[in-house]
Each structure stands twice: as C-alpha cells, then as structure tokens.
Design a binder for these strands. Structure first.
Lengths: 148, 148
DNA sequence: TAAAATTACGCAAATCAGTTGCATTTATTA
DNA sequence: TAATAAATGCAACTGATTTGCGTAATTTTA
C-alpha cells in the first residue's frame, strides 16, 4: 500500500488522469477535497476556498468530477448535494464503491466509513435488491472530544 | 395480534388519539395513508385525493401528523418529502421505529420493510452511533410483475 | 350550546438549492 | 500559434418547501 504524501500531490496530474481540464479553480477544488477530512457541500466549498468562484461553476465542476470517477455523492443531513473523494481505483468506467456513511448529529458533517461491513442482500420479501445503503447516525470523533 | 379491518376504521378517532384536529381534509388524508400500500409524497397526495386542498395545507398537515407520531419521514429517490404510517405504538412522546426502506428504481416509490433485520451498532472507528438507516435499492413486487 | 380561544386553511409571496442559456474567457488540440 | 473545445460568470429560471396573514372551521370554556 502506498501512503500519499499530502504535501506533494500533483493535483493537475490527478485532473489529467481523470480526463478533466486543469483550470486554476479545479486544481484548487481537488486540493480542497484532498485536504478535507470529511465530505463537502457546495456552500462549504464556496465559503472556504480562496479562489472566488460562482456557484454554477462549483456545481458543474462537481458534476464533471463525479462523472469521471474522482468524487462520489454522499448523503447529507439536510439533503444538500455533498461529495467525498473516491478511492483511487475509481474512474469514469469503473466507479463502484460501497461503503457506509456517518452523519454527525452535532456538526452535520458526513464521513465515509470504510470498515463497516455492508451485508449482501439480493432479495427481501419478494423485492429484488440491487444495492444497499447504510447511514450511521451519531457523533464524529471531533464532536465527542469537544464535549469532554 | 389484532388485524385491522380497513373498511371500518374510525379515522376521526385516530386523529383524536393523536391530539390532531378532525378537519374534513385531515380525515381524508389519514384515510389515504391507511389505504395506500406505499409511502406518499405531497404531489401524490394532492393529485389523488378527492378533496381539493392547497399544497401549503398538505405540508402543514404532514408536519403535524409527524410531530404527533402518526406518520414518519421516509427516504425518497428524488429527495422529496415523503411519509409513511407509523406503527400503532407511536405517539408524540414515543416516536421510535427502526426499519429498512426499499426504493424501487422503476416506479420510484418507497416502501417500509419491516422484516429486514437491522444490526445494532453502538460504535464504529471511534464514532458513537445512535441510529442506523438502511436503504435497499431494487425492484418492488409490482414492478417485477409488470415485466413478466 | 353559544361565545371565546385555538387551530387549520387558502392565497400570495418569499426562500433556497439547484439548473439553464448565453456570451466571454481559458485550456486543449492540431 | 490558430482553431477547437471546454470552463466560467452572470442573469434569469425552476421546483420544492416555507412564511405571513386574513378568514374559516374546530375545540374549549363558561
């Protein structure tokens, strides 16, 4: 397993590898995803990156990133559009990853939980099941610490 | 176990038991929930009940019903507000029921699945878990039959 | 059971997230 | 570097949900 050195990632390269244009905003956007511990909403992106950007461009960039296997949609407490980085194996052609998500009731952030074992269910009461989504609701580590 | 005779339910009584006003629209609305096999969106309610009603009143009635333990929110494929009946034990004070939901990829309806066993998880990777939501994506029974 | 108090209703208008069209700028390709 | 393609910003739009407010129906009280 290769550990990624967050200080020396070539974000332009990552965009190229996913067939995405290397504009200055998109380089900053993908870097922001890499530096964030949790998933991001449009609002969080706009108000936290240095680069001034229109919300329309954010929506369109997120769409393109998702289509090309760089990020994936995650659930959000308030049903907003929210994304997190995909595992490095993802691409536009192979874009499957099944993991649980944690919604923190305190800070409302969404985290990807990779070690929760998702059961395989093909059938239930006559229904044919193709996919299973699990959402864990609770407190993230930061919010527990801030209480103590 | 008491089987409910759907032809002879006193819907006014049900509203009273949940401390809700017995207006003609609300009686029709709760009856509509009892007669529906699946959960209901605002749009489905407005276009299917005989009583002419403003959408604002639907939203407010659904809100009141939920608050008083008569219905609960269920996930919706398009992130619309969608509700289903609660089990009869629910009230405004005790309004807990943990079951899985099926989203049918074909008809976009949401069904409550009561026999799917939801695992109990209190902790995961340092996160404290209070609740677990499971969404099964697949085909409902009606949609499978319509293909054959 | 009628008056008083509370709650629901309908309408119009507002809000809020997300989308679309289009002219302009930036990036990629040849 | 010119030609082509894609991204950006702005304005305007959509669709779901919410809010304000005057009126009507329901519930409570005397």
């Amino acid at each position: 397993m290769i550990l990624i050195d967050k200080e020396n990632i070539d974000f332009g390269m990552i965009l190229s590898q996913h067939a995405l244009s290397k504009t200055s905003f998109r380089k900053i956007l993908i870097e922001f995803f890499y530096r964030s511990k949790h998933s991001l909403s449009v609002e969080e992106i706009i108000s936290n990156i240095s680069h001034p950007v229109d919300k329309v461009s954010v929506y369109r960039a997120l769409n393109a990133f998702e289509k090309n296997g760089l990020i994936h949609k995650v659930p959000d407490k308030a049903n907003l559009i929210r994304y997190a980085l995909c595992p490095s194996e993802c691409s536009s052609s192979k874009h499957l990853h099944n993991h649980a998500h944690l919604l923190c009731s305190n800070c409302n952030e969404t985290y990807c939980i990779n070690d929760f074992k998702i059961p395989i269910v093909n059938e239930c009461k006559g229904f044919v099941i193709n996919n299973l989504k699990i959402i864990l609701e609770g407190s993230c580590i930061d919010c527990q610490q801030s209480y103590s």
